[in-house]
Amino acid sequence: MSVESQDLNLCANDKRGKHQLGAGAGLVGWDEVTQGIVLTSFDGDASDIAHKKAEERNYSEFNSYTASVASWRVQKPVFNRDICIDCQNCWVWCPDTSIISRDKQMLGIDYDHCKGCEVCVEVCPTNPKSLLMFNEHADLDESLAAWPEKKKKEKK
């Protein structure tokens, strides 16, 4: 099975996952916040966002796209392009907008926003699954090399 190395910053805006959640420098405390806070999701013109892909958008510092929840994960999903049939089940059910799909093709996983819930693995219909969970610190290429073989259907 030939396996290509995966680009971890696939289709990523250069602002993706820069910040950690929680209090940071320069934030005011809860008792200093004035009533009625307005946060802007984008810098500059925000019209027609529905027709812009993430990499074309001008996210502001307040958009949670610029934050990361990667530290929540214990296990991470690994994607195997060779088996995927682009059914997009993982895309529609991913709760964290972490499946990167462009032009009807599943490209990979956004590891800045994935929380490792394993929903994508559960809904993957291929045999063997084209998404599997591996240890957070596992090497991607090694994980792909250790992919299980196709399982035969058990006769009832």
Partner: peptide
């Protein structure tokens, strides 16, 4: 689903809802 998936998400990740 393939057609549906060509939409550009307007709900970003790194919200703090539970995994799953």
């Amino acid at each position: 689903l393939k057609e549906f998936s060509t939409n550009n998400d307007r709900f970003e990740g790194a919200h703090t809802l539970c995994p799953g």
